[in-house]
Design a protein around this nucleic acid. Structure first.
Length: 465
RNA sequence: GGUGCUAUCGCCAAGCGGUAAGGCCGCAGCCUGCAAAGCUGCUAUCCCCGGUUCAAAUCCGGGUGGCACCUCCA
């Protein structure tokens, strides 16, 4: 397995801390709103990594957290007069729904910040004891970045003037210092007890503490891989790494991976630009698997430029897999073709080279259709083809649907019946060699956005997307 | 201002020093009553200018264009 380490900035061979096992931690969402396309892409990228490791035979411990303590959640509480739990549980549920819809494998563990306060408090106490953390007059606790000589090594941001945009708090010892704990008083609605005063944790300490609590360090590292969106490299991951290093004495992660951004028509997707796309909105129009296929089709490290025209084009590629699946649907899977299996896994083992993986699938589809054109009743071929499709699903999460239903999404039963009737009428007309009527019926179906195809197994129909 | 990423066929997109994968679209053909689907064939020398090398889309330098991060952000 080769992965691109975003700290070394090069592709490196993955060597696990513990043989045949991998622990990966990915920064999950802050649950104050619905998931957008960017969340989908991040989940998707690491889902692909998760599946690849598992297919390679690794035992994978995959942790993805929920940040359920945050200023934005507090703002939402104030605006809605709902409790923190009401808000966060609601969005966690909706997040899980969305991820299920696009076929994301469940992580082995999905801890929440609220469940790990003790670990955070412990870590802060530890840092205070070492005089790496300090309290300012309002009770806030800051991390002293000057105490960590390796601070900045991760993101390569070292000089102070590069940080000009960080708001400066007068009592901070260094401009780069960040809050570990934000003090609170009676007025605050989210407030936790700690030996060093009431308050709530800062964002960065959440991940560090959760990793510390849920993993065992090996060879000076807490985990094998730490992942997240490209925007998290600085300051979030830099701060996480520094805290953990200072508190625990070992490095947080052996490898760091960052996925690229989703843009809408070449622009960054953001609320302020008014072009934010919620996954839920997309899923109202398009099937989750189609969204999954589309968002997966660009290498995870590149930025992804989302637009509906490309989505529809990418669907045509998935359609071909399902048309093949239709042709072998009457058979149970045998064993996949070894060469196919190997080349597909090799592609994904090369830093998740999805483009090569997809081209291998296309090649398999063409070959399979050729075989079936030659002999549609070749059972051995069909068994292998079905198994190949199953393998694609295992590794990439595509092709799991009933192929007939895939092409009939959103069609009501009454409409399906009407379509079947029209097809029967056309059949009769064809037998009577009344091609004029047959073509008329076909045109009528077409006007209903239904495409038909005459095959040896009778006339099949598909909804035109 | 600082730090990075990126520029490959009309569109999407691989390539990681050895002579341009794949998909969409288009054209031609096979198949078909005609279609559709499927299959076959055809379609780029890689933003510009220098350099290194036997060999560069791939490395280096300089331009030009696009994007991101440095502020909550996947």
């Amino acid at each position: 397995m080769y992965i691109f380490d975003s700290i070394k900035k090069e592709k490196v061979e993955f060597v696990p801390l513990v043989p045949d096992a991998v622990t990966m931690y990915v920064c999950g969402p802050t649950v104050y709103d619905d998931a957008h396309l960017g969340h989908a892409r991040s989940s998707l990228s690491f889902d692909m990594l998760f599946r690849t490791f598992k297919t390679l035979g690794y035992e994978v411990n995959f942790i993805r957290n929920f940040t359920d303590i945050d200023d934005k959640i507090i703002k939402k509480m104030q605006d809605s007069s709902k409790s923190l739990k009401e808000i966060t549980e609601h969005y966690i549920q909706r997040y899980n729904e969305d991820m299920d819809a696009i076929g994301i494998t469940h992580p082995t563990l999905a801890p929440k910040a609220t469940q790990n306060l003790e670990a955070m408090i412990e870590m802060i106490e530890n840092l205070l004891k070492k005089d790496i953390a300090y309290k300012i007059s309002n009770g806030d606790i800051y991390f002293d970045t000057s105490k960590d000589k390796l601070y900045g090594k991760l993101s390569n941001k070292v000089s102070d003037d590069t940080l000009s945009r960080i708001e400066s708090v007068s009592e901070k010892r260094n401009q780069k210092d960040f809050a570990l704990w934000k003090a609170c008083d009676e007025k605050d609605i989210v407030c936790f007890e700690a030996s060093f005063g009431k308050g709530r944790p800062g964002w960065h300490i959440e991940c560090s503490a959760m990793i510390q609590k849920h993993t065992k360090p090996v060879d000076g590292y807490s985990i094998d891989i730490h992942g997240g969106g490209a925007d998290l490299l600085f300051p979030h991951h830099e701060n996480e790494a520094s805290q953990s290093r200072c508190a625990t004495g070992h490095e947080l992660a052996k490898y760091w991976m960052h996925n690229g951004f989703v843009q809408i028509d070449g622009e960054k997707m953001s609320k302020s630009l008014g072009n934010s796309f919620f996954l839920k909105d997309t899923l109202k129009i398009y099937d989750g698997e189609i969204v999954r296929f589309y968002l997966s089709s660009v290498h995870y490290r590149n930025d992804f430029n989302f637009n509906e025209e490309d989505l529809l084009n990418s669907k045509k590629r998935l359609d071909k897999l399902y048309r093949l699946k239709k042709r072998v649907f009457d058979i149970t899977a045998g064993e996949p073709n070894l060469e196919f299996k190997k080349s597909l896994l090799d592609a994904m083992s090369d830093d998740l080279n999805i483009s090569v993986a997809l081209s291998i699938i296309d090649e398999m589809i063409v070959k399979s259709n050729e075989q079936l054109d030659l002999n549609i009743n070749d059972k051995n071929a069909k068994k292998e083809i079905m198994a190949n499709i199953d393998f694609i699903n295992q590794l990439l999460g595509f092709g799991y649907q009933n192929p007939f239903l895939y092409f009939q999404l959103g069609i009501e039963p009454q409409l399906a019946e009407k379509i079947d009737n029209l097809i029967k009428q056309r059949m009769t007309a064809k037998l009577e060699r009344n091609f004029e009527l047959a073509d008329k019926i076909r045109d009528e179906l077409k006007s209903m956005d239904i495409n038909i195809m005459d095959t040896t197994n009778g006339t099949l129909w598909e909804k035109i997307s």
